[in-house]
Amino acid sequence: MNGIHDIGIQNSLAENLDGLIKNGRLPHAIMLRGGSEALRQRLSLFLAEAFVCEGDSKPCGKCSHCLKAQSGNHPDIITADPSVQGEKTFKIALVREIKDDAYIIPNEARSKVYILRSADKMNIQAQNALLKLIEEPPTYARFILECDSSAAMLETIMSRVTLFDLGADKDEISDELRKKADETAARLAAAILQPTEYEFMKITAEFEKDKNLFEPTLPALQLIFRDAVIIKAVSDITLSGHADISRQAASKLTMNALMKMTREIDNFRESINRNANKNLLITRFCAVMRSSAYER
């Protein structure tokens, strides 16, 4: 069995997830955002296997639960995929099926895992129905939501799930560009905490020279502010690799400001996916992020 480092996600994310699994602290409701569809599915199945595994090192890959999970035949790992039913959206009827099934105790494992593919294609009614389930789930129920973008997800849903950002498709970004984007994101996050706009505008100007840098920087920046939200909510689990900057952001900015910035970054990512003009986006980015940070 391949380990989490063989899935294809960033090393920092793999190490953090590995730590959560080893310490038995995987959240009951997880959102996997970004990356390729295949990458999200690989990680979902790995986490589902970890949830049902009864070996000492999870997932052990050897117990009956792991073997059934790997073969796709575990009765307590349920995949909800609207495309299988020929649907383009994730309808409320499918959420209701999940809800009805969730209150039936697991067949074999201690946990019952629901993988929701294309979760970002839920309408408001479907999301509200899901919200009630993940707010007060059965003790054994676990939920893994896969989505390309979370821009269309309700804030109430986002506040109930633990977000793991897979970034852009790894095959599309070189290691050199990924490293540069991560470093740029850290500089931007630190600059936004400064009393003046000069340093932030100076760094943003680099996107004008290298427009390919803008897109991979956004998820890295978002992860830093996501960590700040978690820290502010009295937890010290960080994923970005820039915990020091996240702690500074948590101490200097309000929760509303941090949440607003993560939502605005979502909007920029969504605009890029719609092939919006990058020059205009970059120009708007500086003003929007500063105003969001200080709630103007």
Results as ranks from 00 to 15, higher is better:
residue 143 F to Y: 05
residue 154 L to D: 07
residue 169 D to V: 04
residue 156 T to H: 08
residue 88 K to D: 11
residue 92 I to Q: 01
residue 146 E to N: 01
residue 113 V to F: 05
residue 69 A to R: 09
residue 58 K to A: 11
residue 110 R to N: 10
residue 120 D to E: 06
residue 130 L to H: 06
residue 129 A to I: 05
residue 158 M to A: 11
residue 69 A to T: 09
residue 109 A to P: 08
residue 153 M to H: 09
residue 129 A to D: 05
residue 113 V to E: 03
residue 156 T to F: 11
residue 58 K to W: 11
residue 122 M to T: 02
residue 103 Y to L: 01
residue 55 G to K: 10
residue 77 I to C: 02
residue 87 E to I: 12
residue 104 I to L: 12
residue 91 K to S: 00
residue 86 G to N: 06
residue 104 I to F: 11
residue 87 E to N: 14
residue 92 I to G: 02
residue 100 D to M: 10
residue 80 A to I: 15
residue 125 Q to N: 05
residue 96 R to V: 04
residue 154 L to Y: 14
residue 118 S to K: 15
residue 138 P to A: 15
residue 131 L to Q: 08
residue 138 P to L: 11
residue 96 R to H: 00
residue 56 D to A: 15
residue 165 D to N: 15
residue 113 V to M: 01
residue 157 I to M: 05
residue 110 R to V: 05
residue 139 T to D: 13
residue 70 Q to E: 15
residue 95 V to Y: 10
residue 114 Y to F: 15
residue 131 L to K: 06
residue 143 F to K: 01
residue 103 Y to T: 10
residue 135 E to Q: 06
residue 115 I to Q: 01
residue 163 L to Y: 08
residue 87 E to C: 04
residue 111 S to L: 02
residue 108 E to R: 08
residue 161 V to Q: 05
residue 59 P to V: 13
residue 169 D to W: 07
residue 130 L to V: 07
residue 149 S to A: 12
residue 124 I to D: 01
residue 62 K to N: 10
residue 116 L to K: 04
residue 93 A to D: 15
residue 116 L to G: 00
residue 113 V to D: 00
residue 165 D to A: 12
residue 121 K to P: 00
residue 170 K to Y: 11
residue 70 Q to S: 15
residue 127 Q to I: 10
residue 61 G to S: 04
residue 68 K to C: 05
residue 94 L to R: 14
residue 147 C to W: 11
residue 128 N to L: 02
residue 83 S to C: 07
residue 68 K to G: 02
residue 62 K to L: 14
residue 163 L to W: 07
residue 66 C to Y: 15
residue 80 A to L: 15
residue 81 D to G: 00
residue 88 K to L: 14
residue 133 L to S: 04
residue 90 F to N: 04
residue 153 M to N: 07
residue 57 S to K: 14
residue 147 C to Q: 08
residue 82 P to N: 03
residue 164 F to A: 03
residue 118 S to P: 03
residue 83 S to E: 08
residue 108 E to G: 02
residue 63 C to K: 01
residue 153 M to V: 12
residue 167 G to K: 10
residue 152 A to H: 09
residue 150 S to D: 14
residue 68 K to F: 10
residue 118 S to L: 13
residue 58 K to Y: 07
residue 117 R to K: 12
residue 170 K to N: 11
residue 152 A to R: 02
residue 110 R to K: 12
residue 103 Y to Q: 06
residue 95 V to R: 02
residue 101 D to M: 12
residue 63 C to M: 00
residue 143 F to G: 00
residue 96 R to G: 01
residue 57 S to F: 14
residue 58 K to Q: 05
residue 104 I to W: 11
residue 122 M to Y: 03
residue 78 I to L: 09
residue 156 T to P: 07
residue 122 M to Q: 00
residue 137 P to N: 04
residue 85 Q to F: 15
residue 106 P to H: 03
residue 107 N to D: 07
residue 117 R to E: 03
residue 161 V to G: 01
residue 71 S to D: 01
residue 135 E to R: 05
residue 135 E to L: 06
residue 83 S to T: 10
residue 59 P to Q: 08
residue 163 L to F: 08
residue 136 E to K: 01
residue 119 A to K: 03
residue 142 R to P: 09
residue 56 D to V: 15
residue 166 L to S: 01
residue 73 N to Q: 09
residue 65 H to T: 11
residue 162 T to V: 06
residue 70 Q to I: 11
residue 146 E to F: 04
residue 165 D to P: 05
residue 153 M to K: 06
residue 60 C to N: 13
